[in-house]
Every structure is written in structure tokens, then in C-alpha cells.
Design a binder for these strands. Structure first.
Length: 427
RNA sequence: GUGGCUGUAGCUCAGCUGGCAGAGCACAGGAUUGUGGCUCCUGUGGUCGUGGGUUCAAGUCCCAUCAGCCACCCCA
């Protein structure tokens, strides 16, 4: 026997018996995002590594420890995308979307890659849905994006999640806050973990969600971001809350939300489902007013979110929610004898031309085993063609649920069609 | 990158202090010479994750390694 191969660590196959679930999640996301007039954008799954280093942040764990970086044959440095926003903004700038005026509403879905130790709800290749609204800094847009995220989850039937929001302020607030943090932590430097000593210099905000016990002690009494927001940032945050109230979206303010990507400004939010275990973030997002310019475009504000399909599936399964109907053929053909088989092939073709989902297993021999196959397929109708049907030029149509059957002329296609439609309506 | 638990048939798992590799489900055939589901009978299917070691003898004990799960971490 030749070499057997295994799937790479942290990846998984979506098997045919489950793929309708993922399709349901994707279809629903497309439906809801198009309700808000978002259009789908598809970008490559790899980009210049530099794009992510500059946008996500070269001090972030994503870039430092988790990114799949590789060189192509001409020694250009690329990365498998660890998230979607950077690519969407790159495309926005590259294709001059800002010149179109108004707000660009862009949605996307696809695989993302992070090199991390796999566990429940966490994979190395995982699939995200997300969207970006670029071109407005109006707080209503923040609220609308959040409302859309909530609407999507609600549409899927999910209830036991909670929305947490925060504001990390603009650059001025951020600097004031960072200085306050540095000042607060300075006397305790020796007690901090190695990571945090580096963070204190480069990105002090991330000290707040360090889980090392000795660092956690100080996080409790650390200065709070919201107290350092300048007037503009504070007004923005208040307005976002007002619009969320108008839209009927429930939330709690969590001043500790510090998103792991460096490009966030002002609004940051997460939707959490505590039944999921350690990986409890269903979706997360926020505003990124400096990102477009940072990537080389004309200064334009933006906001967006992204979530993982895997965690949605876990949450839905835990709650016993439906992924829509599992697909199965409507008609299954059963034919015994060479001439009957030939007849079945042409009936099969005609049924499919009518738009009727049809299957026929030419490998199966006996009537019995073909009937078993028909039963297993879940088809509601079986069409039987045997000796007597061939002699009389008829077809026997069997209702698999009721067990009833009747014989009709094989020539009247319309007749066949009305039978199928009839039976389809009954079931 | 760190720790704990687990790897036996396609799936879920049993296999005692080392002694002939098992069950259920699934799959195939039959009981029923043109009729599925229920029942009963029969059958196919295994480099016991991989590589070493100890032993007369290893699925079982030891070491390494890979993978899965859970947690840390990170976040989707």
C-alpha cells in the first residue's frame, strides 16, 4: 500500500453530509448583509506580509507568533491572511473606491490562517464572515454595523450571547491613556512578566488583559480608558450608545475590551457566548479611523467586524438550532434489466431538465437493493421500471412516505411532471 | 510556545495483574424468484497512530514521536 496522508494539524474537512450547514450560515450572512446594502468583495488569501505587519501591528501576537509567512520563487515575502480587514482596505485603496463617494459597504467570507495550538473553536485554517463600512465616522454607522451583527446571530436563532462595547479613543486619547498606564505601571516593572515589560514600552494597553497572576493584580486598579477619552471620543461613544438604544440593541459597557489588532480606534465591541468554553468570542470588531491612510490611501474612517463560522456552528448545535433542511433527491429511479436501465437514463435526464433533483444508482443490481438505496437517499418519490413497465410502456410511481404507488403512461411527460409536483406538495 | 487527558474496524467504544484482536452502529448478501423502512440470519472490514526498547511472548509495560481533545496563551 502506498503512503497514507493526514490532514494538516489544525485544519478540517467539511464533509458532504455537513456542508449544507456551512452553506446555510453563508447564505444567511449574505441575505442579512445585503439587506443593509452590503456587497461582497473577494480578495486573495495571501498578501504581502508587510500589509499585515503595518495594519494589524508588528507588536501584535498575530503578526509576531501566528502568521504564516513564506517567500515565493522570487523571494517576495507573503503571508497567508490572518484576518480580513487589511485586505479589504488594501483593495479599497488600490481600486480607488473613495472616489465613488459615500460609504463603501463591503462584506466578505473565506478562510483565514493563524499558526496556533488547536483547541475547541480554534483552528489554524478557520473561516470568517465579516464586513467593513468605509467612508464615514458618523456614530450611527457604528451602531448600524453592530446591529447588523446582532441581527445575523438572531436570524440564526441564537439568543444566549451578549454584546460588550468599549471605546479605545482616538490617537490623542490613546496617547494620554498610554502615558497614564506607563506612569501607573512604572513602579511595578520588576513584578511584571517578560511579555508585559515589552508591552509597557510598545503597547501598554495590552497589559490590561495579561493573564499572568502577578500582572493581573495591577490590572485591577489600573487607569481606565474611558476616563482618558478626549471630548470628541467621549461624544462619539455616547452617540453610539444612543443609536444602539434607538435601534433596540442591548449591550453592556466593558472598559477592559482591548482588541488584539493595533488598528482600532474609538468603538470596540465583542459578542460573546459563554457556553463555548475558553474560545468564547463569537465575533469582534471596531472602528479603525487611521487604517486607510496608514495603508496608503486618503484618510478615511472605517468600521467593521468579523466572526468565525466554526464557533457559530458550535453554538447553534449546542442550542439544537436548525441549519435548514438537509438536502436529498426528490426522485430516485429504480430499474432492472438492461432495457429498463436505458429507459431510466432517459427519464432521469428529462426529470433533471425539469429541475427535479434526481438520482439513479446504476451500480446496484437487484430490485431490492435499489429500493434500499432509494429509501436511504431520502427521496420522497421512487420511479420503478421493470419488465412489465417495459412491456406496457409505463412507469410506476411510488410515494416512499405513504407506500402507495400507481402506474402511468411513459409517454406523457406532462403527466409525470404533474405527478411529481402533486406529490411534492403533499409532502 | 507550556501543561493535563486520549489514540484499537468507516463511526462509537470494550479488551483485567502481558498469553489466538472483540461488540454495537454502518456497509454487503440473504430470509421474501418485481418493492424500501421493522425484525432475524450471514458476511466483508484491523500495519491496535508511528518508531524504538523490555520480554519466550506487547493492543497491554517503558521511551520517543505524531495527532486529537481540554486548559494556559491568543482570539474568530
Amino acid at each position: 500500500m502506498s503512503q497514507r496522508y493526514n490532514i494538516p494539524r489544525g485544519t478540517y474537512d467539511i464533509l458532504p453530509q455537513d456542508s449544507y450547514k456551512r452553506q446555510y450560515l453563508m447564505d444567511t450572512f449574505r441575505r442579512i448583509s445585503s439587506l443593509y446594502n452590503y456587497r461582497e468583495i473577494v480578495t486573495p488569501i495571501f498578501e504581502s506580509a508587510d500589509l499585515f505587519e503595518r495594519s494589524v501591528g508588528d507588536t501584535s501576537d498575530i503578526v509576531q507568533k501566528e502568521m504564516y509567512v513564506f517567500e515565493d520563487r522570487k523571494q517576495r515575502k507573503f503571508a497567508l491572511r490572518p484576518e480580513g480587514t487589511a485586505s479589504v482596505v488594501r483593495s479599497y485603496v488600490e481600486n480607488g473606491m473613495q472616489t465613488a463617494g459615500g460609504v463603501a459597504r463591503l462584506s466578505y467570507m473565506g478562510p483565514m490562517f493563524r499558526y496556533d495550538r488547536p483547541q475547541k473553536g480554534r483552528y489554524r485554517q478557520f473561516y470568517q464572515y465579516g464586513l467593513e463600512a468605509i467612508g464615514s465616522s458618523h456614530p450611527y454607522v457604528d451602531a448600524e454595523v453592530i446591529a447588523l451583527a446582532v441581527r445575523y446571530l438572531t436570524e440564526l436563532g441564537l439568543k444566549d450571547f451578549r454584546l460588550e462595547i468599549n471605546s479605545v479613543g482616538g490617537p490623542a486619547s490613546a496617547e494620554a491613556y498610554n502615558n497614564a498606564l506607563k506612569k501607573y505601571y512604572a513602579p511595578h516593572v520588576d513584578d511584571l512578566c517578560g511579555d508585559c515589560r515589552v508591552r509597557l514600552e510598545k503597547n501598554p494597553r495590552r497589559l490590561l488583559d495579561c493573564k499572568v497572576a502577578s500582572c493581573k493584580v495591577y490590572a485591577k486598579d489600573a487607569p481606565i480608558m474611558l476616563d482618558y477619552l478626549d471630548e470628541e471620543a467621549l461624544n462619539h461613544f455616547e452617540a453610539v450608545k444612543k443609536y444602539l438604544d434607538i435601534l433596540g440593541v442591548e449591550y453592556t459597557v466593558n472598559p477592559r475590551i482591548v482588541r488584539g489588532l493595533d488598528y482600532y480606534t474609538d468603538t470596540a465591541f465583542e459578542i460573546l457566548d459563554d457556553s463555548l468554553g475558553a474560545q468564547n468570542a463569537l465575533l469582534g470588531g471596531g472602528r479603525y479611523n487611521g487604517l486607510v491612510e496608514q495603508i496608503g490611501g486618503k484618510d478615511s474612517p472605517g468600521i467593521g467586524f468579523a466572526g468565525g463560522f466554526e464557533r457559530l456552528e458550535l453554538s447553534m448545535e449546542k442550542n439544537g438550532l436548525s441549519f435548514g433542511e438537509e438536502p436529498h433527491p426528490e426522485v430516485f429511479l429504480v430499474a432492472v434489466g438492461e432495457k429498463a436501465e436505458d429507459k431510466a437514463i432517459s427519464v432521469c435526464r428529462q426529470l433533471r431538465a425539469m429541475g427535479c433533483v434526481t438520482d439513479f444508482d446504476i451500480e446496484k443490481g437487484s430490485f431490492k437493493s435499489q429500493m434500499k438505496a432509494a429509501n436511504k437517499s431520502g427521496a420522497s418519490i421512487a420511479i420503478l421500471i421493470g419488465e412489465s413497465e417495459m412491456e406496457n410502456n409505463t412507469l410506476t410511481i411510488k410515494d416512499m412516505r405513504q407506500g402507495t404507488q400507481e402506474t402511468i403512461s411513459a409517454d406523457t411527460l406532462k403527466c409525470l411532471r404533474s405527478h411529481i409536483v402533486n406529490l411534492r406538495e403533499q409532502s
